[in-house]
């Protein structure tokens, strides 16, 4: 089992005619994902990798019945693309774009309130339900079908974690990069709630990093309402305060968002926190069992 995307997902790629959009459309198709449509305003009628291109998401929904979007639109136009997908009724919106102005995301987040669409990202690698569908930019072959979920604020760090899990013989139900920006569509808690209901998931690996308080909030939720075992890692234990560590959201500011505080909150909630990243696969195996 899995959450958000599976073999029944019909994907629309927004920004399909751009370099990134085209490259990853090819990769997603190769993984077996059903990419049913692309959208680039003004390029309707073209085809990319055999996928029909439309001018609007509304048209792609009407003609191709797409229900999942993957966005590669450049930063100045990306928040608009998110809102377009939500207005067209797309159920799951995955925004890969990095560098969207924060106040654009304030508007987009406000627009999404009260709508049924789920936004993942922005500034994220996307979602993969191994063996079923890949909606994003992660390398497919490191994943393995299984029953461990991965939720992470990072991209390549998630690949490292998945690689260790696969190496330890632990396959994955769904792996989700929630994004490295200050404002993201779905929090750890939003997704934990879904994994709680997913019968195909028996444990969760949660990868956090410095900045904000999403990990602390997740720790509290897990303590109160999440029955499945959780293994966690927090990146940035050696990060200096006041500096933006690559991700726009990875900054210790005003004494808030330190790795040690997050680790303490997670441990207090009974969560196994891996101190040294190379130990993650082995620790996960000990906690989850085979």
């Amino acid at each position: 089992m899995s959450i958000l995307v599976d073999q029944n997902s019909r994907v629309v790629v927004q920004g399909i005619t751009g370099k990134e959009g085209t490259f990853h459309t090819k990769q997603m198709l190769a993984y077996g994902t059903v990419v049913a449509a692309g959208v680039t305003p003004g390029k309707g009628g073209q085809k990319v990798e055999g996928v029909p291109v439309y001018d609007t998401v509304e048209e792609a929904v009407r003609r191709e019945g797409v229900n999942v979007s993957c966005i590669f639109v450049p930063p100045p136009f990306a928040a608009d693309a998110v809102m377009e997908a939500a207005a067209a009724g797309v159920e799951v919106i995955v925004c890969i774009t990095e560098g969207i102005p924060v106040l654009d995301m304030v508007k987009a987040a406000d627009f999404l309130k009260g709508k049924s669409s789920v936004l993942i990202g922005p500034n994220c690698p996307g979602i993969i339900s191994p063996g079923k569908a890949k909606v994003g930019i992660m390398p497919g072959p490191i994943h393995k079908e299984g029953d461990i979920a991965v939720i992470s604020r990072s991209g390549t760090l998630t690949y490292e974690v998945v690689d260790q899990l696969t190496g330890a013989g632990l396959g994955q139900s769904t792996c989700i990069g929630i994004g490295g920006d200050p404002i993201i569509g779905s929090s750890f808690i939003d997704l934990l709630k879904r994994f709680k209901e997913d019968e195909g998931t028996r444990g969760v690996v949660m990868i956090g990093e410095i900045g904000g308080s999403a990990e602390e909030e997740a720790a509290q939720y897990i303590r109160e309402a999440f029955p499945k075992p959780v293994v966690s890692f927090i990146a940035g234990q050696t990060a200096p305060p006041g500096r933006r560590m690559g991700h726009a959201g990875a900054i210790i500011s005003g004494g808030q968002g330190k790795a040690e505080d997050k680790i303490a909150a997670l441990r207090a909630a009974g969560i196994t926190v891996v101190g040294d990243l190379p130990d993650l696969g082995q620790t996960a195996l000990e906690v989850f069992g085979r």
């Binding site: 991209g155 500096r243 560590m245």
Partner: peptide, 27 residues
Amino acid sequence: MVNGAGLAMATMDVIKHAGAEPANFLD
């Protein structure tokens, strides 16, 4: 030297755990 911000931070932490100190963050 690392690709990706999260992995770069985590690599700094690995260096620290190995008994050294990171000289930089580079994603």
